[in-house]
Design a protein around this nucleic acid. Structure first.
Lengths: 348, 348
DNA sequence: CTGTTAGCGCATTCAG
DNA sequence: CTGAATGCGCTAACAG
């Protein structure tokens, strides 16, 4: 009998809990309990079950368990990209927090498109996640509706949406960038430009530009010095190309705020190639506190946000919402940002 | 009756296919067929079903479908990290190839630990993926066993394992690094050092070191100039710290091969900070063709591998294996690498 | 083109 | 501490 089972499993059909139960001489229910370690099973039967599991090479089928218990253990997480971005850190924060609570993260990246996001949300909802974490506060109308109707905790991150769906873990990109411009102003810079992408696909980038413009207005600085170059998120390479255009258009610029550290780095390297000293000829700042900003020469002035903490906080919020089963008291967590002055804007 | 359903669903229970069927006045099976678009359903009933779906806000439950059809549509993919690494590109290649075929990628990162990998493999197997893509050829004994017994296509990437489990998409990191050292030799460098991490956790890094050592032996160069610094993968920052130790220990070194572009970049920036010209005083090369290597000043000599292509090829291989249901003819795909000489090793 | 029957593999619920 | 009955929501297989 046991022989039969072992044979069957080696032929291609995976063994089931019933197979384990038969080999161990107990009921399937006891196996289920033993494997989940929730309920109590005597040490003796436990051992026999473990032995049977080893013998058969049994692996629990969560998808069946999910159907039965109506708890998939999935959490969906959507980020714009994984490449060279702070979002990879956020994902790490999310997964570390969530896997500890025994949940699986279903990861998707939108490539900075809310249309893609809508598709992904719909696709993930089919797997009945217990919660969903998205990036940003801008979504298609249908995506919003899907999220609202899903009946699960929703967390928007990396932004402070004017109209949150439920929970939020973020900060104001506009405020952060505004603070950076103010700091440059304090250091004596007066002809400050902004370098970013061409569209508002990257809503955080767009918000940063808004913050720049607000600061320039408030401070009475010459406005309109905005270079839009390339489809966001703009790369190091594009940062290098854009700074050339910028200097051609406004040769008197004394400081540039870039939409991210990557474009800032590209801009600095291009300046160095052309013999323009940074920061003596021109100061350049970025955003995000990427590693390259900490290690490059000169080190790059930037705005630091703890991307991993955003993920951890989101995970924590989600777990709490799941435990309390209370979707009625959404909370907004504002994470701090810090302007880090470094060598790339050190006035002589 | 319909009213009842709508009410029930708004109370918290999600509508099921049976609800849709009732509202549309058809059988659940017809709804199932309509929603999958596989089989034929008359335009008329199709419309009624679509209407019912909208009305109820119904979302297909794939986890139930998976159990019934015994096809989850999941593919598991494990990478060492997502942060600042080529693996994010590989993941993009994998997902783009796989989502087109209607499959979901379950992503996991091992943090360069084969023990973590084992845990992740076991965890993912519980979701009954239809295939699994792993990074590298080194696994724990139990992990190997799990993979072999899973009865699904297995693909190892980024390496050429001496003992492949099944399919492989990779290249020889040792050969690639060896080729780089040879190129430096051709350019006249004779005192060539290697800069990498302290352990063999990062097996690809360890292989690169092997390739370096082989080349040095073959060329009769002074051997043993290896700096091991920090737990792999070593960062930009660690690259900067390591180059200081290296120059202290072997001041006559004329070229350094770094285990990755990140550490190479950190090393270069540190040299610049200390007034040591790169490449005139010392040449520095990296590995991986990261964007920073293409944009920095000087641009960094490196070995390029198409990380995204690795992912796409792995996805393609997986889909083919799934379609042919033939796990008996594993294939190894060797992807090319290219040594890219750039400014950081340009001899005066 | 559509419906009926049966069951995927497990966990919940209630009994012992 | 253990077992039996029941059903999660869907789809395969067959029948109309």
């Amino acid at each position: 009998m046991n022989e039969n089972n072992k044979l069957a499993s080696s032929i291609g059909k995976m063994p089931t809990m019933a197979d384990v139960a038969r080999v161990a001489g107990v009921s399937p229910m006891t196996v289920s309990r033993a494997l989940r370690k929730h309920q109590f099973v005597s040490t003796k039967t436990m051992e026999r079950i473990e032995h049977a599991v080893d013998q058969l090479g049994y692996v629990l089928d969560k998808s069946a368990g999910a159907l039965s218990s109506r708890r998939t253990g999935f959490v969906a997480a959507l980020v714009p990209s994984l490449n060279n971005s702070n979002f990879a850190d956020t994902v790490r924060g999310i997964t570390s927090g969530l896997t500890q609570s025994g949940r699986q993260v279903l990861l998707g990246y939108t490539d900075y498109s809310i249309e893609n996001e809508e598709q992904l949300i719909e696709g993930m909802l089919r797997w009945r996640p217990e919660g969903i974490i998205v990036t940003g506060g801008r979504h298609t109308a249908r995506a919003r509706k899907l999220l609202q109707n899903a009946g699960i905790p929703v967390i928007e991150t990396w932004d402070l949406p004017p109209n949150p769906i439920q929970n939020v873990v973020g900060f104001s990109n506009a405020e952060a960038c505004r603070a950076l411009v103010y700091r440059l102003y304090e250091r004596g810079y007066r002809k400050i430009a902004f370098l970013g992408g061409t569209t508002t696909r990257d809503t955080r980038g767009a918000d940063r530009r808004l913050g720049y413009q607000r600061a320039v207005d408030e401070l009475g600085l010459p406005p309109g010095r905005v270079i839009s170059f390339g489809s966001p998120p703009i790369s190091m390479q594009q940062g290098g190309e854009a700074i050339v255009l910028l200097l051609r258009q406004w040769p008197d610029v004394d400081a540039v705020v870039c939409v991210s550290d990557l474009s800032a780095f590209g801009a600095i390297a291009e300046c160095q190639r052309r013999g323009l000293d940074v920061p003596d000829r021109i100061a350049i700042a970025g955003f995000g506190d990427f590693e390259v900003a900490r290690c490059s020469h000169p080190r790059i002035t930037t705005v630091a946000v703890d991307a991993e903490a955003i993920g951890q906080l989101a995970a924590g919020q989600l777990i709490r919402a799941l435990d309390s089963k209370d979707l009625n008291t959404p909370e907004t967590l504002v994470v701090p940002f810090t302007v880090l002055e470094r060598e790339s804007t050190r006035k002589a």
